[in-house]
């Protein structure tokens, strides 16, 4: 027996919303999905009229749906936004070529300008080359850290007011769990905020319009709208620990679907004790981006690669300093011998 759409529009429902369990027809689902993102944008004060917004486009489902929905809402509600696509080419043979094709398709379909920046032009290293240096074990550290930097630099280059990323509710809940598991209090407190405005000036805020949208609904939306996206998980071995957190979240979701929103609520409402010292965030002395250390992670990793000490940024800071000093000492010795 067909189930009726719970909005009593008279049509038959075609799906059950993972978030609330309501049965909806296709049209009511599209409308509900879009209206919820609109609600997040309005209540979170994500944009101002006239803003230029860079959509971080990876070719994956989240950013494809994000670009599409932002375009729809911008027109429907007259946000007055100037939307551009910003894509990062990490330089991974086979993987990136395909996903960049998807992004170019988005550019044509949604008629948004597209800027592609590559790791190679920004850092002088492609991910392929980095993997050649560090092996397959720690490269996710590199791609995460460099991607973050690359988006910042790209946003500065394009002169945008903010960067919109496709992080969804599942990603956020996973990050909350992740930060508890690794005891990262500072990031635990920050990770659920919808605008990651940096305290230091000069850095461009990040916004997450899909923060309260379930991953499953994003897939449903893309599926029924027939949006093309490129779906491949990272070709390199992803961080094992994050994988555990992801699997745990999926198991929890099967038991109680609202758990994703419940975990985000926990993240939003927990407080850090007054007497716990959190790392002070300053600017990297080399590149000026936000960092809790003198040198930001990207600069340390880059230095490691350029020095031929790729492990420099992966271990503890004290170890990195020692390795750096040792190499410098050796260099001085060599230099001394020359004289």
């Amino acid at each position: 027996m067909p189930v009726k759409c719970s909005s009593s529009c008279g049509k038959n429902a075609i799906l059950k919303r993972p978030k609330t369990g309501d049965a909806l027809c296709k049209d009511c689902f599209f409308w509900a999905f879009e209206t919820e993102v609109h609600n997040t944008i309005v209540s979170g004060h994500l944009f101002k009229k006239g803003d230029t917004v860079a959509v971080a486009a990876s070719g994956g489902k989240d950013s494809t749906v994000l670009a599409y929905v932002l375009k729809v809402l911008n027109e429907r509600h007259d946000y007055g936004l100037n939307l551009v696509l910003l894509s990062i080419d990490e330089g991974i043979t086979g993987y990136r070529d395909d996903s960049l094709e998807t992004v170019k398709q988005n550019r044509d379909d949604y008629q948004m300008p597209l800027k592609i920046l590559s790791y190679e032009e920004l850092f002088g290293w492609t991910m392929d080359a980095i993997v050649g240096q560090v092996g397959r074990k720690n490269n996710c550290t590199f791609c995460g850290v460099f991607r973050r930097q690359a988006l910042d630099r790209g946003a500065t280059l394009l002169g945008v007011n903010c960067v919109a990323t496709g992080h969804n509710a599942d990603d956020l809940a996973e990050t909350v769990l992740m930060n508890i598991l690794r005891g990262d209090i500072a990031r635990l407190q920050r990770c659920t905020s919808i605008i990651t405005a940096s305290e230091s000036e000069g850095s461009i805020p990040r916004v997450k319009p899909l923060k309260y949208t379930y991953e499953k609904e994003i897939v449903m939306y893309a599926y029924f709208k027939r949006l093309v996206y490129f779906s491949t998980e990272c070709v390199f071995a992803p961080n094992a620990y994050r994988g555990h957190a992801r699997a745990f979240l999926k198991d929890l979701e099967k038991i109680r679907p609202s758990v994703i929103m419940d975990i985000i609520h926990s993240g939003e409402s927990l407080q850090v004790k007054d007497d716990v010292k959190l790392p002070v965030r300053t600017q990297c002395t080399r590149c000026g981006s936000v960092s809790s250390q003198e040198l930001c992670k990207a600069c340390v990793l880059l230095e490691g690669l350029n020095r031929g000490l790729p492990k420099l940024g992966i271990g503890k800071t004290s170890l990195a300093n020692r390795a750096r000093e040792q190499q410098d000492a050796q260099k001085t010795r060599i230099v001394n011998c020359d004289f």
Partner: peptide, 16 residues
């Protein structure tokens, strides 16, 4: 790749 990871600054080393 790993767009989920781009809030990272490589601190997974906190986990022994």
């Amino acid at each position: 790749m790993c767009s989920r990871n781009d809030e990272e600054d490589g601190s997974q080393s906190l986990m022994e």
